[in-house]
């Protein structure tokens, strides 16, 4: 399963211009990569999109999860189902739907339209992770805080939010990685010179795989791996301290 990745990593250190032949160890492609301004511009766009989308999703996703768990309202089941739908709808469907929607309202495509479309799925991921933790929490925690004199706002900020924090952070990291990785939705909703890293890679690969893309891929895989590990570690720590 990991064989392609290993081969990719192996060839990223290849001195040769062509993937097929091995001409000795070299860091040349990494050097070229780090001096490529187009790559950096794309990385900047990607980071800006991911940070904005995740930031908005963290707040809305947490509130959504808490709202769905704590309050009874009409159409709650339907709302819950609909809010998690982006997790199972194919990306291409979201991409096309978003594009059609934006076009029909004559909203010009820009970096912000990518952010908006990323919030769609980031929100769902954050909400799912937070909901899972919320359902495992003692339902009387907030009451205990109220009982000790905290107002409902204080109870939320001082008890519920800290208890949910590991889930919020790991949900955000997950959403961040997914946003950074997304090609399909970004390329449909991009405009105004916005160019994300996956879009840049894709456009280059179409004209043949160059070794610097190999190098970039290795860097991306490592970065994603570190984030995923971090997310898992934070979730694990949170579980360790969870009160019985």
């Amino acid at each position: 399963m990991y064989l392609p990745i290993l081969i990719l990593a192996f060839y990223s250190f290849n001195a040769s211009r062509f993937s097929a032949t091995w001409e000795g160890f070299s860091l040349k492609w990494y050097e070229i990569l780090f001096n490529d301004s187009r790559i950096f511009a794309a990385l900047q766009d990607s980071l800006a999109i991911a940070i904005c989308a995740v930031g908005v999703s963290a707040v809305l996703g947490t509130l959504m999860a808490v709202g769905l768990a704590r309050y009874q309202f009409w159409g709650k089941g339907l709302y819950r189902g609909a809010s998690y739908l982006p997790l199972i709808i194919p990306d291409i469907a979201i991409a096309v739907a978003t594009l059609v929607f934006l076009a029909s309202f004559a909203i010009p495509l820009s970096l912000w339209t990518i952010v908006a479309s990323h919030i769609v799925f980031c929100l769902a991921y954050v909400a799912v992770v937070v909901s899972t933790r919320l359902s495992g929490l003692n339902p009387h925690l907030e009451e205990a805080a109220l009982d000790l004199g905290a107002t409902p706002t204080q109870a939320f900020l001082k008890v519920l939010l800290p208890e949910l924090m590991p889930a919020i952070v790991s949900g955000c990291l997950l959403a961040f990685v997914l946003s950074m990785d997304d090609l399909l939705i970004s390329s449909f909703t991009a405009g105004g010179g916005a160019n994300t890293l996956p879009m840049e890679i894709f456009s280059r690969v179409r004209t043949g795989v160059k070794p610097d893309i190999n190098a970039l891929s290795v860097v991306l895989i490592l970065a994603s791996g570190v984030l995923a590990f971090l997310a898992e570690y934070i979730r694990y720590r949170g579980d360790q301290r969870r009160s019985v």
């Binding site: 009387h140 205990a144 004199g149 905290a150 009160s243």
Partner: peptide
Amino acid sequence: AYRRPVNTVFQSYALFGHLSVWENIAF
């Protein structure tokens, strides 16, 4: 509830997991 002069010991204890014993009592 937060303005009543009563305090409750819950069946499930409902201790705050992110706070130490000392901080729980000081809450």
